[in-house]
Each structure stands twice: as structure tokens, then as C-alpha cells.
Write a protein that binds this DNA or RNA. Structure first.
Ligand code: FES
Ligand code: FES
Lengths: 143, 143
DNA sequence: TTAACTGATACTAAATTAGTATCAGAAAAC
DNA sequence: GTTTTCTGATACTAATTTAGTATCAGTTAA
């Protein structure tokens, strides 16, 4: 069971990459090279991030992308939601016909409790925090 | 983002169904009818559950399946692992070349912390507990 | 006017998930 | 002893999701 798809994975890494070069525009090409993400795939990921307002872009030579917001305001949860939709453990494990009182359903409670926890956890992790961690430990190659 | 697949969903519901009729063998057909799960699909799900030792089976007329263990010992986590493998948030968000010190990787820590929490939560929920909840609230049609 | 970019969108490939079909064999019922 | 009711095993197809590619139009700076 894998929770994060490549879309999310690449997107977070691309955002971190941008967050580490806060001045000026960065081309998708350079991020693609640096992070070894397939170029065209990354292009489309950026377009989503741009549409969602996390990333700003500038066309033409010398253009590129950069973070549109404070890295600490960009939560991994936001990225997941852009590419994978709302976290939901299961639509509804027990169908309506079996579960007359949906609002009070105890099973649903269990599931939603877990859902909420996952959401909270992914909300705590921001791009800014990840960059901070990386810098502190000094693991990422390109500074 | 959906965490549980139909396999897991159906399996848990089938296990609850069995757990509610603790005496004697129950045919896959009757569970299929009761829970509105495609028959052949359910057959294969039972075969997995049998192989994994959660369910016992008896061939021939009058045979069928039943829980092989105490319902309180069957965790939803076990079922997930049978059908969807280990819960893992992401293989490794930052590749080896970017992340020299895998053991100390801070990003990995975040991810594994979340992974562990999800696992713990799904470990707390057992078939027995779900049956207890259902009975207490009296929602499921067939007793 | 050319080179380096993004915007938009159509397309293909691979993997996973969901579901179906079939045949063999065991046990009970008749 | 043969018919019916069941599981064991396995092969197959369909649908959906995920991953990745390709192309062309348009913008900007040099
Ligand atoms: S399980 Fe869906 S409402 Fe109860
Ligand atoms: S992100 Fe994979 S080890 Fe650090």
C-alpha cells in the first residue's frame, strides 16, 4: 500500500528545490536535471502547482518558476490534495442498505478518526520545515 | 486518495459477517448475497484469507468457511497487509544520490512517523471490536 | 530573428485494481 | 452411486489509475 504517488513525490521535491533558490526564476529543465524527474512529467506537475497558486511562473527566455508563497505555508497535505484528492480511507465500508444511520455509524467513526489523524500529520509537514531539516542535516546535494 | 481497496473492504465485511455467525460453516454464496459482494471475487478473497490463516474452510456440501481465530485477534491492519501489502507512505522520497545518510534522514523520519501512526491506528481496530460496535448500535441488517 | 522559456492539450504505456469464468475434487444428501 | 453443494486452483478480461511522452502555440530576452 503506497500512500504517495510519483506526482506528489516529485511535486514536493520540486517545491523544496525551488524553496532553496528563493531569488529569481528557475527553469523546469534545471529542476528536472537536478532532481532526476522526467522533464515533460515535471512540466505538467508545475502547471498544476501554478494553477493551484503554490508556484508562480514567467514565460519566455530568462523565465521559469518560483515559489509563490512562503515555504512554511505550503503543507504536504496541500500537495497531496492537488494530485491525489482528499485523503479518504474508504468511501463507505458498509453500504447504505447495511448502515441506516450514517451519521452515527461507529465504523465510520473509526475510519474518520484515522483519516483525520493522517490529515493532521500531513498538515504539520511543510515545505519550509523540510528545507529546514535538510539544511540542518546537510543532505541534499545542490544547495 | 483512497487508502483501502475493494479487496480489503470486502474482506473486512466478510470477516464481520462470519464473526456474527460463530457456529458452523457458512457458504461463500450466502456471504456474497448478504453483503452484495460479487461471488467469484469474494471466493478469491476467502482463499487469501484461508491461506493467511484467518479463515478456516471445509469442502463439499454442508461445508463453507468460518473464522479460524478469535475476532478480537483479527486486526484490520492484518487484512490490509494481506491484500495491499505493508503500509508505506513513499518508497523514499529523496533518492539515494540526494540522500547520503539514509538512516539519519530527517524527511524519512517524518514519513515513517506517519506510517507508524497509521499502522498503530489500523492495529487498534479489530473485527471483534467492529462487531461489538455494530451490535451495540444495531445497524447491520442480518444479525 | 532566434533561443529559452511556459501554456495547453493530446496521446501512449505500464501498473494496479476489479471482476469473470472454468474445471477439478470433496463431502453430504438422495 | 450419482447428483448437488460446496471449496481449491488458476487463467482470463475489463476498468481505472498512475506514469510518462510528444507536439504546437505563444511569450520574452538577448
Ligand atoms: S459504514 Fe458507511 S455509514 Fe456506516
Ligand atoms: S528521503 Fe530517502 S533516505 Fe532521505
Amino acid at each position: 500500500m503506497k500512500v504517495l504517488t510519483k506526482h506528489t513525490d516529485y511535486a514536493v521535491r520540486a517545491l523544496i528545490s525551488l524553496g532553496m533558490k528563493p531569488d529569481g526564476w528557475v527553469s523546469a529543465k534545471s529542476v528536472s536535471d537536478e532532481q532526476a524527474i522526467p522533464y515533460q512529467f515535471l512540466r505538467r506537475i508545475f502547471q498544476e502547482l501554478i494553477r493551484s497558486g503554490l508556484v508562480a511562473s514567467k514565460e519566455g527566455a530568462g523565465g521559469g518558476v518560483k515559489l509563490a508563497r512562503d515555504p512554511y505555508s505550503i503543507r504536504v497535505k496541500d500537495v497531496i490534495e492537488i494530485f491525489q484528492g482528499e485523503v479518504q480511507v474508504s468511501e463507505c465500508m458498509f453500504r447504505k442498505q447495511l448502515c441506516s444511520n450514517r451519521a452515527n455509524c461507529v465504523l465510520r467513526h473509526e475510519i474518520m478518526r484515522i483519516e483525520q489523524m493522517v490529515n493532521e500529520e500531513f498538515s504539520k509537514v511543510t515545505v519550509g520545515k523540510l528545507i529546514g531539516d535538510l539544511k540542518r542535516v546537510g543532505q541534499m546535494k545542490n544547495p
